[in-house]
Amino acid sequence: MKIPFEFNSDDERNKWLLYHYLKKSYTCIGLSEIDAEKKTDEMILQNSKNLFGFHGLA
């Protein structure tokens, strides 16, 4: 997969990748594009304090 743009930091890129693949996983299980975006936003906000840490979202 080619990322279409540059990021200022690795953290920004990691968050973009997490969002992209989480949304993709929701569409793969049958959610519509809009519902997948809503669910992804919800999960990112719910776990915003621990996205990549121990027992984090990623």
Rank of each mutant, 00 (worst) to 15 (best):
H20W: 11
N50K: 09
L18M: 15
N47F: 10
L17M: 05
I44H: 00
K23G: 01
N14K: 09
G30Y: 06
L51S: 04
N8A: 11
E33M: 12
Y26W: 04
D35H: 13
S32V: 05
D11H: 10
G53E: 01
L45T: 12
M43F: 10
M1F: 11
T40I: 05
F54G: 02
G53P: 03
C28F: 07
S48R: 11
D11V: 11
I34M: 01
F54V: 07
G56Q: 02
T27S: 06
L57P: 05
I34T: 04
A36D: 02
S48V: 08
I29G: 00
L18S: 10
E37G: 05
L17V: 15
F54P: 00
Y26R: 10
L45V: 10
G30M: 05
D35L: 11
F52W: 06
N14W: 08
D11M: 06
R13Y: 13
N47G: 06
E6H: 12
A58Q: 02
Q46R: 14
L18G: 04
Y21L: 00
L31W: 06
I29W: 06
N50W: 04
K24Y: 04
R13E: 14
H20D: 03
L31I: 06
K49S: 07
H55Q: 08
L45K: 15
I34Y: 01
E12W: 03
Q46C: 11
A58R: 05
K15Q: 14
D11Q: 08
S9V: 13
D41Y: 09
D35Y: 08
K49N: 07
Y19P: 03
Q46N: 05
S25A: 08
S32C: 01
L51C: 08
E12F: 10
D11R: 04
M43V: 12
Q46A: 12
L45E: 07
K2R: 15
H20Q: 08
L57C: 02
I34S: 00
W16L: 08
E6N: 15
E37L: 12
L51D: 00
E12M: 13
R13V: 12
D35M: 13
D35F: 09
E37Q: 11
F7I: 13
N8L: 11
Y26G: 00
L45Q: 13
H55C: 05
E37S: 13
H55S: 05
L22V: 07
N8Q: 15
I29K: 09
M1E: 14
L31H: 01
G30A: 03
K2P: 06
F52S: 05
K49C: 09
S9L: 12
E42T: 13
D10K: 14
F54T: 03
L51Q: 01
M1K: 02
I29T: 09
H55N: 09
S25T: 10
F54L: 04
K15M: 02
K49Q: 10
T27V: 13
Q46T: 08
N47S: 12
K24R: 10
L18D: 00
L31N: 02
D11F: 14
Q46G: 03
E33I: 14
S48F: 09
Y26A: 02
F5S: 07
R13M: 15
K24E: 11
F7E: 04
L17P: 02
Q46S: 06
K24I: 03
L17I: 13
A36K: 11
F54H: 06
D10F: 11
I44P: 00
E37P: 07
G30V: 08
A36C: 11
D11Y: 15
K39H: 01
E6G: 07
L22I: 14
P4K: 13
E42S: 15
E42C: 10
